[in-house]
Design a binder for these strands. Structure first.
Lengths: 215, 215, 215, 215
DNA sequence: TATGAATGAGTTTTCATTCAT
DNA sequence: AATGAATGAAAACTCATTCAT
């Protein structure tokens, strides 16, 4: 068999699974879940369809496996970028930078995770929501820690979860915006968001709030 | 046609179109773009399929029409909720409230707009991105006006568009979060976001920024 | 459109349904349930596959519809061939003749009913077993009536249901045998079975039984 | 290969073939010919698929081998249960008892033979029909012997083959009925059938026939 | 205007069968 | 002798779309 022969045969299962997942992420991210066909995935993977079904199960299963893998990669990237001994604001900053760095260099993963997974019904969003929950919890923990230290009142504390959701959403949206403005450096994007959120949160904690009544 | 024929026919075009669009929004929001079938839409609309094609064109066209209509409704709701003579912060506040009010009472519209439109490829996102742009511009204008008045430096000014994007994303994400926490009153959600963003933005404008260097 | 144009268009639903069922019975009887493909059925029916699914549902549904239709035809043929005022033996005789006449002129129906329906799992056999039950009940009623009149003992009475089952099975088997011996006239086949069964039953009723002990 | 390797290999051919056939009979009888998959059979047999193909050939071949083996077992059981020196009626009685005993303790075999084999097209029915022929011949011989001894007329003699077919069918059908009424003892079932058939046949032989003309 | 009837083209999925080791 | 890896071929089913009336 010549060296150029792309279709190497009898590879061990693990290798094939990786090939397939790679191809699937690529195709799903390009065409979306529904418009992606198993045919194309099998072509891109250089593997016949029956192998996909044998190794990864149905189209749904395959998609879920993609989401799971990419979500884990993303969360690992974020978590491993955070120094748990640093103060909360530094931790948030590190997390944001890691997040944007990941998105910057794994656009396909991001598209699959953000655009596709959300729009599909329950079965998939669960995987996704699980990851989102971890992210929100991560942020929530930081906020709560800060709030407690600084003595935040009860009512405001309740809102941390919502704030965390907003922050995660803002990050996602900003990441999307960033896809269309690639010239902007990672650091800048992360820094803008950090400022917007952290300073605002700081004011909030200190009771320095905006109310319509003031006007 | 007998007099007893209960099915009213020969309705004016406008009425038919409305029937169809209403049905389409409902079905799209329930099943998603791809899983929605023209058959079901025609059933729900009480109109035969050929009529749909005659009036609204292909499935893609129909979906685009839905997006457009709902996006316009949303933007109208927001804009008409804003008093153009009020100061920027009040305008932002009014806009946020109107937005959350709309989402709260038009969940179907929101699902179609947010979850479905985004996940579909180019043709649809355009409609959606157009609306997003209008929203971002709206916010951007407020921010810029404020920044200018308060004398924001050049570099920061560049970031207003990104900030606006983040704000819009945060709003969307928070709206989603809210769907799962319906007990929270509209006013609270809007107020949280307003505080988070406005105060943070205020600090930003005043040069009161967070930087990793501080630590 | 020329007269020879086989594919007549826009036929009313009923007509199409009949076409489809006819084709399905033919194909199922030729290839068996599993080896019959919807493609072939649609070709034979001169109708596209989607019509089949629209009108008759899934392959299972289609098969069930075939069974039901043919089973009803068969039972109607049998029942309508029986004079309810005749004495039991005459009724049995009439039924047998009608049965063999039907099988003789509807071999396809018979193959579908006897060979295919039985071999498929639960869902189908139910339809079939329902018909079989009707047949067995029919015979059982005749036997019981006779037995009662002639004063059959309790224990033997219990066996009538089994006897009826045996008779039905004998009929089926004989019908199958007959398919391979078409030269034999209907009347002869029916008459043989009638004799075998009726006389034996008569002996049974009169206590004139065979037991191994006798020897 | 390490000594710890628990999976015993290099078994002699006969043993492997038996393993495979046992598994195949079980799986075929549970799911039917078509719904049985070679995968499941190989799993149940604890043997890899290529071995099955090496030893027993294609799926068709494998099924045919099952039929053949089970049919032989059944016929052996019947034949070995008959004392060739006994009078015809006793032989029939012994055969019937052996038949029902076999079915009672080999339900899987029976399902494969009766329900599956019949429904498949030509290739299989041949094996089956061969066995059926042997059974019919067996019975036919008994009937003919009796008829001759008792001096049956020509015309009636011709019908013995059909009678044998009917008897075999009745047995099969009764066996099926019995599967649903397991409380009935083997002896009773066999005895009912014996009476129904033998007495009827006896009458037949003695010219004591039923004719519609009588009424 | 309005629709029941009709289909081409495509999808996911499964399975018997065979290499390469 | 024995098997994990691999696939060609075909099946059931669906859907957007368009005639003919």
């Amino acid at each position: 068999m010549s060296v150029e022969d792309r279709r190497v045969k009898r590879l061990p299962r693990e290798v094939r699974e990786k090939q397939i997942l790679d191809a699937a992420v690529r195709v799903f991210s390009e065409h979306g879940y529904h418009n992606a066909s198993m045919d194309e995935i099998s072509e891109v993977a250089g593997v016949s369809k029956p192998m996909i079904y044998a190794y990864l199960g149905s189209k749904e299963d395959l998609f879920a496996a993609c989401i799971q893998r990419e979500a884990n990669l993303l969360m690992e990237a974020i978590v491993s970028g955070i120094d748990a001994d640093a103060p909360p604001d530094m931790q948030l900053w590190m997390g944001l930078r890691s997040f944007f760095e990941f998105v910057g260099s794994n656009k396909q993963s991001w598209r699959v995770l953000h655009r596709q997974a959300i729009s599909q019904g329950g079965p998939f969003s669960e995987e996704l929501l699980a990851m989102r929950s971890r992210a929100i919890n991560l942020v929530d923990a930081l906020l709560v820690r800060t709030a407690t230290k600084r003595g935040m009142d009860e009512h405001t504390q309740k809102s941390t979860e919502a704030m965390a959701a907003a922050l995660v959403g803002a990050s996602e949206s900003l990441a999307d915006w960033w896809l269309d403005h690639p010239a902007v450096p990672t650091r800048a994007v992360a820094s803008w968001l950090m400022n917007l959120v952290w300073m605002g949160f700081g004011d909030l904690v200190e009771g320095n709030v905006w109310t319509p009544a003031e006007h």
